[in-house]
Simulated scan of single mutants.
Amino acid sequence: MHITEQDTLLFIGDSITDAGRDRSDSASLGHGYVHEIAQMLRARQGPGPTVINKGLNGNRVYDLASRWTADVLDHRPTTVTVKIGVNDTWRRYDEGLLSPVDEFEDCLGSLLADTARILSARLVVITPFLLPVTTEQQEWFEDLSPRTDAVLRAALANGARVVRADLVMSRAAEEREAAELARDGVHPTALGHRLIADAWFAAVDPAAGPHPRG
């Protein structure tokens, strides 16, 4: 996949994608991996492609489904990147709110299939990840591991590129404290976001990035 200035890249997901974006400013990209990707593209390609961030704090896959037409399809993007899943797991443990893995997979798969069919858009899926910083978070893998497998199956079934954030972050945590990458185990630090951005380029368009950082 080669990204050009004529492309529109749309990113959608939960707080990891949102990354503090200004909801009142449609051009706001937040301070996370989406911003990093846009900066790298501009450094390599001048103005670069149009980049849109539609991440929303707290979203599960069903929340994405409820706003998919307005926040994805109506923008007519040429590439759609989805990062979802950790809240579907997290809500089980902090609120007892279940998101059965089979239903999760069906929902995500339908969103990807509809997007490819309606827009002929290129699809990218970023896997959920967890770097436990508490003993309790270790238990989450009982739910998150099969959910990550479901994300991979949905991506494969719909021809999506896959960004293995779970592997990238866990490998980085072999050399650093987990909190250096995600202070609460879920939300990336600046370093964590840079690693996700680099992994996105490696999976999507290696020739476009990463750009050396000062």
Rank of each mutant, 00 (worst) to 15 (best):
Gly48Arg: 01
Gln137Leu: 04
Ala157Ile: 07
Met169Gln: 04
Ser26Trp: 00
Glu36Tyr: 14
Leu97Arg: 13
Asp94Gly: 06
Arg76Tyr: 06
Leu195Trp: 02
Ala199Pro: 04
Val125Glu: 03
Thr115Cys: 13
Ala207Leu: 14
Val204Tyr: 05
Val86Leu: 12
Trp90Cys: 06
Asp198Ile: 03
Gly20Leu: 08
Thr78Arg: 13
Phe141Ala: 12
Glu177Cys: 04
Phe104Ile: 11
Thr148Asn: 10
Ala165Leu: 03
Gly185Lys: 11
Asn158Tyr: 03
Ala165Lys: 06
Glu142Gln: 05
Ala182Gln: 00
Leu98Gly: 06
Thr148Lys: 09
Arg153Val: 05
Asn59Phe: 06
Gly32Asp: 05
Asp71His: 03
Thr89His: 10
Val168Asp: 06
Leu195Arg: 00
Arg176Trp: 03
Leu41Pro: 02
Asp205Arg: 14
Tyr62Arg: 14
Asp25Pro: 08
Asp88Tyr: 00
Arg183Glu: 09
Ala113His: 09
Tyr93Arg: 00
Tyr93His: 12
Thr81Pro: 02
Val168Ile: 14
Ser110His: 13
Lys54Thr: 08
Arg44Pro: 10
Thr135His: 13
Asp166Ser: 01
Gln6Ser: 15
Asn158Arg: 08
Ile52Arg: 02
Arg117Lys: 15
His211Met: 14
Gly13Thr: 05
Phe11Pro: 10
Pro47Thr: 07
Val80Trp: 00
Arg23Lys: 09
Ser120Ile: 01
Thr81Tyr: 09
Pro77Gln: 14
Glu180His: 08
Asp102Met: 03
Leu181Asn: 02
Ala154Trp: 06
Ile3Ala: 06
Asp149Pro: 05
Ala172Leu: 08
Ile118Ser: 11
Val124Ser: 07
Asp102Ala: 14
Lys54Ala: 12
Pro132Arg: 06
Asp106Cys: 01
Thr89Arg: 03
Ala155Leu: 08
Ala172Gly: 00
Glu103Ile: 05
Gln6Thr: 13
Gly58Asn: 11
Leu10Cys: 04
Leu29Asp: 08
Trp200Asn: 00
Leu108Trp: 13
Trp140Tyr: 09
Met1Ser: 09
Leu56Ile: 15
Arg23Ala: 12
Asp74His: 15
Glu175Asn: 04
Gly46Lys: 02
Tyr93Gly: 02
Leu191Ser: 11
Val151Phe: 03
Ala155Trp: 07
Ala179Arg: 14
Pro188Ile: 01
Glu177Met: 07
Met40Arg: 12
Ala182Ser: 09
His193Asp: 11
Trp200Phe: 14
Trp140Thr: 00
Thr4Arg: 11
Val125Lys: 00
Ser99Val: 13
Arg23Trp: 10
Gln45Pro: 01
Ile37Ala: 02
Ala150Thr: 05
Pro128Cys: 15
Leu167Cys: 10
Gly109Glu: 03
Gly209Val: 10
Ser145Tyr: 11
Asp18Pro: 03
Leu112Glu: 00
Asp63Asn: 15
Phe104Thr: 05
Asp184Gln: 07
Leu108Asn: 10
Asn57Arg: 14
Arg92Thr: 07
